[in-house]
């Protein structure tokens, strides 16, 4: 299977989407600039990569400022990245798993479509410096969240409808109950990111009218718990046969807890601890992809037998979900900076 998650000409597509959905927003006051060093270096690296990889990009993209003027927009774009990564994971994973399920129900195509759109929206958002929500992105993200909710219902029904109902074997081998949550989370991050681009009362970024940092931290921690639950279920099914299988059920939950701790009790030390653990979770997601690729090789016939083992082996596309959630957590941490006051 070869999927083309990126439109062939991203800049043109983005301009097109912009022209379709642009909403004019009054320019905001100059914002306080509180910059996170890691975020900056990430941004720089990304920009360098873009410039290196796409010499043909329009100047607007090539010469975009390396440092955003506003914390809210920075956080929003970090969330776009998180959301996009999650959506990409969902796109590839649901393609594999729903192919395995022979697309028996036409609804099984839905997550492919919404996650593809979400990837597009997130790419768009990542390169968008404006301090305003964007209708296309907003609608897409909302759609993703709804897809996640409906998908979860479908999956729960799928487990319960098999003979034996909600018994372990059905949770192990029927539609994974936790999987659609990834697109729900992706959507939530996206919706939150759109809210962040707008100034809240007192110049503080808000989401759903609440303090952006804490709200986002809570959403992230919840998402982390869900993602961990899913990993636990499937790694339990795999009997934790490789000690590395314990990593995603230890580091990510710790990072979720530390993030909540930082959000509730505040303090630079707690934020530092949370930040470190979240970066460890980012690494967990990346390493997991390689572990799963190795897991496919360990199946009978290895990668040569990819037609079977991509479906039966450990799912290669799922571990980046941790990276996505952790990136959102890092964005939340940025927003929490200065919340102690």
């Amino acid at each position: 299977m070869s999927f083309q998650p990126l439109p062939a000409r991203p800049e043109r597509t983005l301009r097109l989407l912009d022209s379709l959905f642009r909403r004019n927003k009054p320019a905001a006051d100059p914002a306080r600039i509180a910059l996170d060093r890691l975020g900056r270096s990430f941004e720089r690296a990304r920009a360098t990569a873009i410039v290196a990889a796409r010499p043909g990009l329009p100047d607007a993209l090539r010469h975009q400022p390396l440092v955003s003027p506003r914390k809210g927009v920075d956080a929003a774009r970090a969330l776009n990245r998180a959301s996009g990564l999650l959506a990409f994971s969902v796109l590839t994973d649901s393609a594999l798993e729903h192919y395995r399920g022979a697309f028996r129900n036409k609804a099984m195509f839905t997550p492919l479509a919404t996650s593809a759109l979400t990837v597009a929206a997130s790419l768009h958002g990542t390169t968008d410096q404006r301090e305003s929500a964007h209708l296309f992105r907003d609608v897409t993200y909302a759609l993703a969240a709804v897809t996640g909710l409906v998908g979860t219902a479908f999956h729960v029904f799928n487990v319960g409808s098999r003979v034996g109902g909600f018994r372990w074997v059905n949770f192990f081998y029927r539609a994974p109950v936790g999987a659609p949550m990834a697109i729900l989370i992706s959507g939530l991050f996206g919706v939150a990111s759109e809210r962040l681009r707008r100034e809240g009362p007192g110049g503080r970024p808000t989401v759903f009218g609440l303090g952006a940092g804490r709200t986002l931290a809570t959403i992230t921690a919840g998402s982390m718990a869900g993602t961990v639950g899913e990993a636990w279920l499937l790694h339990f099914r795999g009997n934790f046969q490789n000690p590395a299988m314990y990593i995603p059920v230890t580091i990510p939950p710790a990072s979720g807890a530390l993030l909540m701790d930082a959000a509730i009790r505040g303090g630079e030390k707690r934020r530092t601890a949370a930040r470190a653990s979240l970066w460890a979770t980012v690494a967990t997601g990346i390493a997991g992809t390689f572990f799963h690729a190795y897991g496919v090789q360990r199946m009978m016939g290895g990668w040569r037998n990819w037609k079977q083992n991509l479906l039966d082996g450990p799912p290669v596309p799922t571990p980046p979900a941790f990276t996505g959630v952790a990136l959102a957590g890092l964005a939340a941490l940025d927003l929490l900076e200065g919340d102690d006051a």
Binding site: Q241, G295, R298, M299, M300
Partner: peptide, 19 residues
């Protein structure tokens, strides 16, 4: 119930899981 079977459902050493 599911039959207890002496064929592994996950890798064990050099034994790959049942295909």
């Amino acid at each position: 119930t599911e039959t207890p079977l002496a064929t592994v459902s996950a890798p064990r050493g050099k034994s790959p899981p049942c295909v």
